[in-house]
Write a protein that binds this DNA or RNA. Structure first.
Lengths: 244, 244
DNA sequence: AAGTCATTATTGTATGACCAAACTTCATTT
DNA sequence: AAATGAAGTTTGGTCATACAATAATGACTT
């Protein structure tokens, strides 16, 4: 053992913890304090072995865990790059698990219902709080949405974009992250579904009604229109995917 | 190589993927199809080595990843036990990342704000949808909450319990999971904060007002009381923890 | 039959080796 | 001098082996 900056100076581990856990804590600390900066690669595995007096096995385990948690980004055969934990990383991490969860019956519906809940309060809030810029953004999104009627894929994109504005209005970075998550988890169903011009038209008009309710500063109507809109959307996919 | 049930029969890997990734897919498949049942331990590492023709290094890497994703539960020195992915596992997985994220300035406030949003719509929904059992549950929670006034720690528990009921009413398993997450992420602040009987009293009365608004089937008042209550709670902790 | 202890099985860690891909260096060419 | 390209070097990915520590097992004792 070289043991210059050894982690467990007393070597009193071995019983309860794994050596890799100590290493993980070490790197997390380094990332937190900025000794390892964002975008910077970790030292080579063999250097870590030297400087911290652990085996390469342990180093690799630690790095793997860090990668799994999203703290570093490990491309095949490249040095792992530090990626300071943010909502995107958190999302990537949980995405794996949730994606697998979503194969279970009923789970997509449950998730969609939470989206209805959250968006309900978001449109209510938009009705009372929306600034001039927010209204403008909604209006523009509405226009591009209308122009996409008939183009199935493009309509889906502009649809998502319209809804995304509600997640932006409160100026809370958590909310857009949540919207991205919803989109990622739910879109495999929606985006594959062929939609007719007629359907597009119905959905566009629903958007319009929500928008108008917000203009009128009427949260109850806005929420009602949103719920109706999302319920209709759900029925569309439910009919298309019988397996839910 | 024994190569009886080899994963990559053509051995055409090596370029893009890691051997461990193939193994992970293999186990995920086995868990999904039920060949590996919930609660059952994985085979010993050496058996896996034999049967799949990979090195123990690779097997361990795969198991570690599965554990990090929450698909198996790996206690130190025990065989990993299959845990079918559920919300709890998802929560455990993301908890690490978010916990670290929460040290950044402003992030706790952002997270708390999303809680305000979600709970706002939950109390609204409770106002319109709550069944007799739900009302009873709220009432009981309110009583134990009142009885805990003066006992700082117990009051906190009963407080959390009162709020948890709103997450249960919609009968959506995702919501209680979200509540647990909020509690876990935000409670380190709250639970450590000493609270006076006076504070307890104020919070209890806020709960009572919310409860009464629900009884009156008055969503607007319920939401307003909730927002006031949570804003007050936030100010309490903000004063206590200047670093936010 | 129940408890105790030795044996075995299995995980955690260390070490060293090798390969192939990525990176560096430096001479060659233009 | 700059661009190119061909070496060598570094480094991650995988394998094999060994040993220590601990859990599971089974034999033994009482």
């Amino acid at each position: 053992m070289k043991n210059s900056t050894n982690l467990n100076s007393t070597n009193a581990r071995t019983r309860n913890s794994r050596a890799a856990d100590d290493l993980i804590r070490h790197f997390v600390e380094q990332i937190k304090t900025g000794q390892l900066k964002e975008g910077e690669p970790l030292p080579p595995e063999r250097k870590i072995v030297e400087s911290l007096g652990v085996s390469r096995t342990v180093v690799r385990e630690a790095i793997l865990s860090l990668a799994n948690k999203g703290l570093v980004e490990a491309r095949h055969r490249y040095r792992p790059v530090v990626r300071k934990s943010n909502f995107d990383a958190a999302f990537d991490t949980v995405n794996d698990v949730v994606s697998r969860f979503l194969v279970e019956p009923g789970s997509v519906k449950n998730l969609f219902d939470t989206r209805i809940l959250l968006e309900s309060i978001l449109v209510r809030q938009a009705s009372t709080d929306a600034q001039k810029e927010d209204i403008t953004a909604l209006n523009e999104a509405l226009i591009t949405n209308r122009e996409a009627i008939g183009n199935s894929e493009l309509f889906y994109q502009t649809d998502v974009n319209f809804h995304s504005i509600f997640y932006k209005i409160p100026q809370n970075p958590v909310l857009p992250a949540i919207h991205r998550a919803y989109t990622a988890w739910l879109s495999p169903r929606w985006s594959k579904m062929p939609s007719s011009s007629q359907n597009n038209q119905i959905n566009y008009e629903a958007h319009q009604k929500i928008y108008e309710a917000i203009l009128m500063r009427d949260p109850d109507t806005a929420e009602e229109c949103l719920r109706e809109h999302l319920a209709y959307a759900w029925n569309q996919v439910r009919d298309y995917f019988q397996d839910i």
